[in-house]
């Protein structure tokens, strides 16, 4: 019997969408300045507008696809994550290797009522294993379930 794969909370799309806006505005500003100074007959307004509209469109598409690809599942031996739009990534973190589990809430997360679960293993590269964008209370539940699973398989961190 396998638990089904879960999608993230739909609100995470807003989080990703909003987080992309800062860099996008910066790029638009650079494009405007470039259109201003470069010896071409391109109105800075058109340049800024073009970059913003194109950028928002692409970013929205990327966010939509990203949300659609993200899945997490508690399997018998570990936490399995599937994500990535262009590069497909699948990660399995065995419960027995989990050293500790945290929830993390940034300002945007709190605004949207979201939380992320971060899983730490002894492999330093594995420190980036996290489930972003869970509903706040679901993030806490998930953290407890992972802590519990980790405790019941304890004693083998293989360091």
């Amino acid at each position: 019997m396998r638990e089904e794969a879960h999608a993230l909370d739909p609100r995470v799309r807003w989080r990703w969408l909003l987080r992309g806006m800062g860099p996008l505005v910066a790029i638009a500003a650079v494009a405007t300045a470039a259109a201003w100074m470069a010896p071409i007959t391109l109105s800075p307004v058109v340049a800024a507008g073009g970059v913003l509209i194109g950028g928002v469109g692409l970013w929205t598409l990327a966010t939509y696809l990203r949300y659609r690809r993200w899945r997490y599942r508690l399997e018998a031996d570990g936490l399995a994550l599937t994500h990535g739009v262009l590069t497909h990534v699948r990660t399995v973190v065995p419960y027995t290797r989990i050293q500790h589990v945290d929830t993390r809430r940034g300002p945007l997360d709190r605004l949207l009522g979201l939380g992320a679960v971060v899983v730490y293993t002894a492999g330093t590269r594995g420190a980036d294993v996290s489930i972003p964008g869970l509903a706040s209370e679901e993030a806490d539940r998930m953290r407890e379930r992972l802590r519990d699973a980790s405790a019941r398989t304890a004693g083998e961190d293989a360091v």
Partner: peptide
């Protein structure tokens, strides 16, 4: 082994 992962680029 601490974590297992697979990746595939387009």
């Amino acid at each position: 082994v601490q974590t297992v992962r697979s990746r595939s680029t387009p």
